[in-house]
């Protein structure tokens, strides 16, 4: 441990000197080694972001070596306490997490939350999309909203687990229509596959999930997209909720957090690393290839966003009846 800390100090000391070299900003090595904690299993969205950070950082020469640990379960709330207790005060450790964890900390009522880690940067986001089966009588968003307005219980909407972003989206829509979010007929499915199958088979009247989850079904004409939930349009010819007159923007954002109890210098080093990473061509190439939406927000701006996101999420979950 002593050696590691010295390495970090040495790397920090080397930074200004390296800046004098004519090799350009991208060639500065900021950390000798970095520990990445992923509170989800391998292969998922957070894991994908973590591996992308590794790949781009190594290609750009920002970090020497990486060590990964995956502890999955319950929207990240199984892994979070472990990161908090084992990495306190360590500057060379990050955790990859996002919007899902904000919600699961509230619904699972866990004592350890995102308040216990240090926000560094928001990296990507993925807006949601509201779809109906291809043969649905709902031709556009208005048809769907009218049906909801008439009787929310009669419109079964499928999506991911209860209290997740899909469920929150439906809750916000009902609230905007002046309805009680508890009236929603929300059918939770375990994972994207079963949810898609239920929509394709018209077992439910509509579905909500991330755009990438449904994009291919929409392209193939097996599902019809009614609206997306981002700030701007995510699909051609599909309006956002915002331009349809509803003040709702939501996204499944993913970002990077530092360990609890790190000092201002350690935090700044992580912020600088993420800023340099975001500016690198290697990162841009990965974001392009994966089809991610860049949502870079760093330092205090990210901290403020996080506070707002937590307050809003808690309010909606309380409306739905999932938060005490």
């Amino acid at each position: 441990m002593y050696i590691r800390r010295r390495n970090v100090l040495a790397a920090a000391a080397a930074l200004p000197a390296a800046g004098l070299l004519p090799r350009g900003a991208s060639a500065q090595q900021r950390f000798n080694s970095m520990y990445v904690f992923v509170p989800a299993g391998p292969g998922g969205g957070w894991d994908g972001l973590g591996r992308a950070i590794e790949q781009a950082s190594r290609a750009a020469g920002l970090v020497g070596s990486f060590q990964f640990e995956n502890v999955g379960g319950a929207g990240g709330t199984v892994g979070l306490p472990r990161f908090v207790s084992q990495r306190r005060g360590r500057g060379e450790a990050i955790m990859v997490a996002g919007a899902v964890m904000v919600g699961s900390v509230i619904t699972n009522r866990t004592p350890v939350g995102l308040k216990d880690v240090t926000p560094i940067a928001r990296m990507t986001t993925e807006p949601g999309v509201i779809v109906v089966p291809a043969n649905s009588p709902f031709q556009n968003l208005q048809d769907f909203l009218n049906a909801l307005r008439a009787n929310p219980g009669a419109v079964a909407v499928g999506g991911g687990s209860a209290g997740g972003i899909d469920h929150i989206t439906l809750g916000l829509i009902l609230k905007a229509l002046g309805k009680n979010a508890r009236e929603a007929s929300y059918v939770a499915f375990a994972g994207g596959g079963p949810a898609q199958a239920a929509i394709l088979g018209a077992q439910v009247r509509a579905g909500i999930s991330g755009v990438s989850e449904f994009a291919e079904q929409i392209r193939a004409g097996r599902m019809r997209a009614l609206a997306t939930t981002g700030e701007t349009r995510s699909l051609d010819n599909v309006p956002t909720l915002k331009e349809s007159g509803m003040d709702i923007t939501l996204g499944n954002w993913r970002g990077v957090f530092g360990a609890p109890g790190i000092n201002a210098t350690q935090r700044q080093a992580l912020v600088d690393w993420m800023t340099a990473l975001h500016a690198s061509p290697q990162w841009r190439e990965i974001v392009q290839r994966q089809g991610w939406d860049d949502a870079f927000l760093v330092g205090d701006a990210f901290t403020q966003f996080l506070a707002r996101d937590q307050a809003e999420t808690e309010q909606v979950l309380r409306d739905i009846g999932l938060a005490g």
Binding site: G72, G73, A74, T77, V78, P81, T107, N108, R109, T110, S161, A162, G163, G164, H167, V187, A188, F189, A190, L322
Partner: peptide, 19 residues
């Protein structure tokens, strides 16, 4: 965690039991 309500059941505050 119950899938349909998102609420933990019989976990006794142990995070490892949430899934």
């Amino acid at each position: 965690i119950d899938l349909q309500t998102g609420q933990p059941r019989l976990t006794f505050g142990i995070p490892e039991l949430l899934d």
